[in-house]
């Protein structure tokens, strides 16, 4: 039973990171019906930028101060949000009226560009994150080890998700985002500047992704240029499980996938973990192609 709760705690941590990244996929899909394949790489960009800020402002061997850590998150969010907007303006907007496949190819190209850009700027090696970026105290509760880094990651992720949910559902601009996702033409004729809504989605999604990417680096204490592929894929699967295009769905899908991965890794086999994840994806697509909370999506894919 201890193993079960331990895996639950680990799964919740990873799951909330997946959820943060999945939100970016689902928001862009919701509004453009486009899978932004570069989104995972944007998250990784966030991890590398955060790492650079931390290491360049902290002496060797010393633990980074709170302010440096906060600054790292702020800079990562800003740079990645700008990168997200540039991506939309250069890779997607010119193809807005082209065949959807063109935009998908453009997304894959953007993903490779980012991935190789990260490799050239930083390194093809795996970089190590210093210790003590977030407080790391172990609490043992009934034989289950809970680390304060884990608790912080889960808590911050939940707060961010709650904030996004309230933003999209309770504010005027959020209503404009939802209206544009449902019917762009009608939204335009109500005076909504849909292009501006799309840009805002390319700010919000990548900003959350950057935080998710930096969490990955801090949690696993390492980052490598091509990890956007596997984390992006997991977050993408999470978005599909929850119902792509659906914001609460992405949150739910992320958490469920994190828990599932962790339990499957703990109980079945960690070498087969990825295969099991994809088996789950296939199963869900067979049983419920629109995902858990999704609707009327099937005809659009």
């Amino acid at each position: 039973m201890e193993i079960f709760f331990q895996q639950l705690a680990n799964g919740l941590t990873v799951g909330s990171i997946y959820a943060l990244i999945a939100l970016g996929y689902t928001m862009v899909y919701g509004i453009l019906k486009l899978i932004n394949f570069a989104h995972g790489d944007l998250a990784v960009l966030g991890a590398f930028i955060g790492l650079t800020v931390i290491t360049s402002l902290t002496g060797a061997g010393a633990a980074p101060s709170h302010w440096v850590v906060i600054l790292a998150f702020v800079v990562a969010v800003l740079v990645v949000a700008i990168a997200g907007v540039l991506l939309e303006l250069t890779a997607y907007r010119p193809l807005r009226h082209a065949h959807r496949l063109s935009a998908v190819v453009s997304a894959l190209g953007a993903s490779m560009l980012l991935e190789n850009g990260i490799m050239l700027i930083w390194s093809p090696q795996t970089l190590t994150f210093p210790e003590g970026i977030l407080p790391s105290t172990n609490y043992v509760i009934g034989g289950v080890v809970l680390n304060s880094t884990q608790i912080l990651i889960v808590a911050i992720s939940f707060l961010l998700m709650l904030a996004l949910y309230l933003y999209v559902n309770k504010t005027r601009f959020g209503t404009a985002i939802r209206a544009s996702a449902i019917d762009q033409d009608a939204a335009r004729l109500m005076g909504i500047n849909v292009n501006r809504v799309i840009v805002s989605v390319f700010i919000l999604g990548p900003a959350l992704g950057a935080i998710g990417g930096l969490f990955i680096g801090i949690y696993y204490r390492q980052a490598v240029f091509d990890m956007g592929w596997i984390y992006g894929l997991n977050a993408f699967i999470a978005a599909i499980i929850g119902g792509i295009g659906n914001i609460p769905g992405a949150m739910l899908g992320g958490l469920l996938l994190g828990l599932f991965n962790s339990l499957a890794g703990g109980y079945i086999s960690s070498t087969w973990q990825e295969a099991i994840t994809f088996a789950l994806l296939i199963l869900i697509l067979l049983v419920r192609p629109t995902g858990i909370l999704g609707e009327r999506v099937a005809e659009k894919v």
Binding site: T171, R172, F173, T175, A176, A179, M190, G191
Partner: peptide, 12 residues
């Protein structure tokens, strides 16, 4: 409320 979008001065 969506129809009233233009009435607000709210940006994202």
């Amino acid at each position: 409320l969506a129809g009233q979008h233009m009435e607000t001065h709210q940006t994202w």
